[in-house]
Write a protein that binds this DNA or RNA. Sequence first.
DNA 1: CGATCGCTTCGGCAGCGAGCGAAGCGTTCG
DNA 2: CGAACGCTTCGCTCGCTGCCGAAGCGATCG
Lengths: 206, 206
Amino acid sequence: MLADPTRAAIVLALMDGRSRVAKKLALDAGVTPQTATAHLRKLVAANILACEAHGRFKHFRIARAEVAHAVEALSELDVVSGRTLPLAAREVRFARCCYDHLAGRLGVAITERLPVFGGSVLAELGIHFDALEALRRPLSRCCIDWTERRPHIAGSLGAALLRTYKDKRWLVPVEESRKLVVTPRGRTMFVERLGLDDALFADHHS
Amino acid sequence: MLADPTRAAIVLALMDGRSRVAKKLALDAGVTPQTATAHLRKLVAANILACEAHGRFKHFRIARAEVAHAVEALSELDVVSGRTLPLAAREVRFARCCYDHLAGRLGVAITERLPVFGGSVLAELGIHFDALEALRRPLSRCCIDWTERRPHIAGSLGAALLRTYKDKRWLVPVEESRKLVVTPRGRTMFVERLGLDDALFADHHS
DNA sequence: CGATCGCTTCGGCAGCGAGCGAAGCGTTCG
DNA sequence: CGAACGCTTCGCTCGCTGCCGAAGCGATCG
């Protein structure tokens, strides 16, 4: 299903998490609209893409996180030479939302510190481990970041962390994008409370 | 590459981490040896499988962890109905090596406790975070367990943990398999030191 | 040293499916 | 209301590739 070059191009074009109309996807993939229609039908039927009709336009997007994970994992083994994630998906490298949790260099860095600072720091942030454990959702779902090629924490814990960062205004979301900006206060806090290296933020002053 | 049914069957048959000879793979996939040869050639060329010649036999195995990750991620989105991991790969559900780290229900359970018990417990086990950090290898590579569909910790930290369990004889490897057996002492220690639920071990007394 | 066996190469066949042109349908404009 | 536009359906072609039969090569074994 993802093996066909055209379908791969379509899915990769959507890997930045935003949605596009059919015609744009057809042009990007280098095929005619009829051909794109056939592929999009299959991709939606396979629950890989989701479709939303808007007037006479149809907007497509990645249907679920599992798809993104699979595409990332596939792109890690560059079997199909040259089929790599497009530049658009690499733009927001430093900090961005990945569905409901934090990704990018910042997300990876925090994940790597997690085993060190442990539960007490989480408690300081107002995240109570036991409350999360009660949720059905896997506690620490994993998500391999496709720019850093390293894991960052997802799951209910990852979602709780991102929610906390936003509430405390350490991070603020950018409109119409998945990008996140680090506030000066956030930078200080990430360094002091989570022990991150200040140099990490050096060339990313918001 | 992994989209072809025959190649998928071959790779899935090898997903238990062991190696097989070409003829067995051909029979499992339901094709003649000539056909299997062609597929195996491609899979080796694509660096998906590794091949080791042994007399007049050729043994094939999964080439690298990225391949296993990709296959796992793909099997999470059951796009291709019925193409799921074979029973053989599901046998050793509780505890097994996944290349160099611990996988299975036990690996997942420990991973979920990691953010709670933090660095001090690691130090008690004789694992020093700073020493690991110096290594080139990503500290906490992630690996989505294909039986539990949840992450367990890999990377240099995962490898160090498994080494420690073996050294302390909490776990002992089973010959000719990737299975690991929990010793009675190990069971006690996992519960006391890492805070795992004793019930987890209930129906897995070695 | 011949027989067997595992793997490989070659050639040809056959089926799947991606692709496009032409035509059709519904929506949105001027 | 008619034109433009986006998406869809239909029918067809054509190239790719998986598959096997036949034959060949090298290693092993009696």
